[in-house]
């Protein structure tokens, strides 16, 4: 029951954001509100088991949301900007030395691994290719591996993110 209500609430809030300014009842028209309730209940009935997959409800804590917002706006965005300048440079010069390496971030939750995988994909010259589900190790395709670095068995996350320790940020948000 709790997964159903939580999913329906999130869907309903999203619906309200998208239909704001439609009428006289507050910001919304009564028809939109009614449809919103209906649609979010249907959505929740279908997708509750994907949306909330573990029963810890760690992410219900608003402090984690605040950290998440700060994470997206400051360290993640700066790393992403640097990544783009780097890739832009490699597009122009064609100077690449690609390969797939293994990193062991030591994250325990699915959401944490998802966030790290997506962060890696959008940041410096790295792309998550696969996950070792037993240990939550990630296989990362790097567009440029430093000379001699390919001999390392396991890469540290500091090798991937040079400005901010993103793995530590994700650990604080998701675990």
């Amino acid at each position: 029951m709790i997964p159903f209500i939580a999913t329906a609430l999130v869907a309903f809030v999203l619906y309200l954001i998208l239909t704001a300014g439609s009428g006289s009842f507050g910001l919304w028209s009564p028809v939109e509100l009614g449809m919103g309730v209906l649609v979010s209940c249907v959505t929740a009935a279908i997708s509750r088991s994907f949306f909330i997959s573990d029963t810890g409800y760690r992410m219900a804590n608003p402090l984690r949301w605040v950290r998440f917002a700060v994470y997206i706006c400051v360290p993640f965005f700066l790393e992403m900007a640097r990544a783009n300048l780097d890739v832009a440079y490699r597009v122009i010069t064609g100077n690449i030395r690609p390969g797939i390496v293994r990193i062991a971030p030591g994250l325990k939750t699915d959401f944490g691994v998802l966030m790290l995988a997506n962060s890696i994909t959008l940041t410096p010259g790295t792309l998550t290719v696969g996950v070792d589900e037993a240990t939550n190790d990630l296989f990362v395709h790097m567009i440029h591996i430093g000379m001699g670095d390919e001999k390392k068995e396991i890469f540290e996350s500091a090798d991937l993110f040079s400005i901010f320790p993103l793995t530590d940020w994700i650990r604080r948000i998701a675990e």
Partner: peptide, 17 residues
Amino acid sequence: FPDVYTRLHAETKTTTF
């Protein structure tokens, strides 16, 4: 770029940005 992985680098990062 020469192969699908390096092309993905160019595609995801730069077009999203």
